[in-house]
Amino acid sequence: MWAMSESVSVRCPVCRCDHLYAAPSYPCACGAPVCPPLDRHGAPLAVTHQMWDEAWVAVACAVCGREAEWPHPELGCDCGTVLRIPVAGDTCPRAEPEVAAPVPPRRAFQPITIRTARDAVTATALYLRRLGYQDIRRADQRPPSGIGLAARGLLAQVDPTVRRASPRDVECLWLTAMTESAHCVYFSLAGYTTEARTSADTLGVPLFVLDLTGTPRPVNSLADELDGA
C-alpha cells in the first residue's frame, strides 16, 4: 500500500476557502513510496497558466536516495481555482534503510486513474520507469500533437486527446527519434487509425493505448515485446 503524506491546511487565496490536503505518493524504482514534502508555512499559488517546468518537482526516495521528478502537488478549489501547493526545499524525511535485498527487475505496475491530460503523462512516466527508464524528462522538441517525454535512448509521445493518432503523428515521432538516434514509443488515449497502425508496424514503433485506469495496453506486436521484456 502506498503511503500518504501528512495532511496540511490550505487556504485558497481567491475565495478564502480552507481545504485539508495530503500529497499523493508515487512508487520509486526500489519499490518504496515517495511523496513530495509539503511546506506547512508556504502559501499556495493560484495557477493561471500551466508551465511544464513548474508542474514537476524533484523528490528523493527516503529509502534508497534515488531522486526523480514527480508531478507538483496541486489542488482544485470549489471556486474553480487550481492551487499549487508549496513544497519544502528538503526531501521527505529519510527513514533508516533496511538491509539491502534483491529487487525484482520488473515490479507490478501501479496505475493512476486518468482524468486529465496531466494524469495521462504521469501514467506514462510511471510505466516508462517500470520499464527501467529513470531519467524521464520533457522532450527537447515539442511534437506536433500531444506531449513529448524523453529518457536516455528513448523518445515517447503521449496523446491525451480524443482524436485517434494518424500516420503523420507516428511518422513525425519516428523521424524525430531518428534524428536523436533514439528508440521511440507512442501512447494514445483514443487509439490509432488503421493506417497509423500499419505505418507503426512498418517503421518499428511500439503503440500503446492508455485506458482510463492509467494502464498502457499494447496495440501491436512491438508493444507486446516491450511490455514483456
Rank of each mutant, 00 (worst) to 15 (best):
W70M: 08
I136E: 00
L131K: 10
G146A: 07
W2A: 09
A100W: 15
R129E: 05
D39W: 11
G153T: 08
Y186P: 02
L175E: 14
H183K: 10
W2D: 00
T116I: 01
L131A: 00
T213Y: 09
A117N: 14
A22P: 00
S221M: 13
L212D: 12
G214V: 03
M51L: 14
L189A: 14
V8Y: 02
L20M: 08
W56Q: 13
G42N: 08
M51F: 08
Y21R: 07
H41R: 13
T124C: 15
G80A: 07
E225L: 10
V162D: 14
R142I: 09
P33T: 07
R163I: 06
P102R: 07
G89W: 00
A95D: 08
V158R: 11
D224W: 12
R107H: 15
T213P: 00
R217N: 10
A190E: 10
E6P: 01
I114E: 04
P97D: 02
A177M: 11
F208V: 00
A3W: 09
A223W: 11
H49V: 14
A29M: 10
C28E: 01
Q157K: 12
W174D: 12
R137E: 10
C77N: 03
D227P: 00
T179L: 12
V82R: 15
L226T: 08
G65K: 09
M51E: 13
R40E: 14
S221I: 15
D224H: 13
W2S: 06
E6F: 04
V103I: 15
C12H: 09
A43W: 01
I114T: 01
P216A: 04
V219W: 15
T176W: 12
G31N: 01
C61M: 03
L75P: 04
W2P: 15
P71W: 07
F208Q: 03
Y21N: 00
E54F: 05
P216N: 04
A68F: 06
M4L: 14
V205P: 05
E171L: 14
G204V: 02
A3D: 11
L154C: 03
T113I: 09
V47P: 12
A229K: 11
A46Q: 09
I147Y: 13
L149R: 10
L149N: 04
Y26K: 01
V63M: 10
V162I: 10
G148W: 05
P44A: 09
D201G: 01
V59D: 00
A196R: 10
I114M: 06
E74C: 11
E67N: 01
D119E: 02
C12R: 09
L131C: 07
C28Q: 02
T194P: 04
A125T: 09
R66H: 12
A125C: 10
P143N: 04
R94D: 00
D140T: 12
R168C: 04
A22C: 00
C28P: 08
A125E: 12
Q110L: 13
